[in-house]
């Protein structure tokens, strides 16, 4: 997928932990539809939202559906921009190693496999949000 896209710039802001509420799971459903409709989709994970991307999730104890494998499919939907706020990770004692290794294949670079997760600072978040056409916050 090229970085250029004729669609609007949609950013999904994920602020909540993956379980406890359904926001994260239902947010992902909108992401997939926006991607299917060929919009320029990116995801931002801040606050407890960074927990959504942690690897090794096991929901057996809470009896909720473990939907975390779906994040690995985002690359196939041309969703290649998953921004994670560095400060939110640090405040929760997490590092990049605690997150799933998510990748996408760059059509413009001989289908090279590239990392989808991009660590950004709180200051960069502000700039990124300003660049968007549509913000969906969950």
């Amino acid at each position: 997928m090229s970085e250029e896209n004729d669609g609007k710039k949609f950013m999904f802001v994920n602020r909540r932990a993956p379980y406890g509420t359904i926001y994260a799971q239902e947010s992902l459903e909108v992401v997939l539809i926006a991607a299917a409709l060929e919009q320029d989709v990116s995801l931002l994970f801040i606050d407890d939202g960074v927990f959504q991307l942690t690897k090794g999730q096991n929901t057996e104890g809470v009896g909720m559906k473990n939907f975390s494998p779906a994040y690995a499919a985002l690359g196939d939907y041309d969703v290649s921009k998953l921004y994670v706020e560095k400060e939110s990770l640090e405040e929760r004692g997490l590092t990049l190693d605690d997150l799933q290794h998510l990748t996408w294949e760059d059509e413009d670079d001989d289908w090279a496999e590239k990392d989808s997760i991009r660590l950004i600072s709180r200051d960069e978040v502000k700039k990124l949000i300003e660049e968007q056409d549509v913000l969906l916050s969950f």
Binding site: F10, L37, L135
Partner: peptide, 15 residues
């Protein structure tokens, strides 16, 4: 369906 949400976001000046 959710397509109608995304379509509305595309057509609107503001969501």
């Amino acid at each position: 369906g959710l397509g109608q949400l995304v379509e509305a976001c595309i057509q609107a000046d503001r969501l």
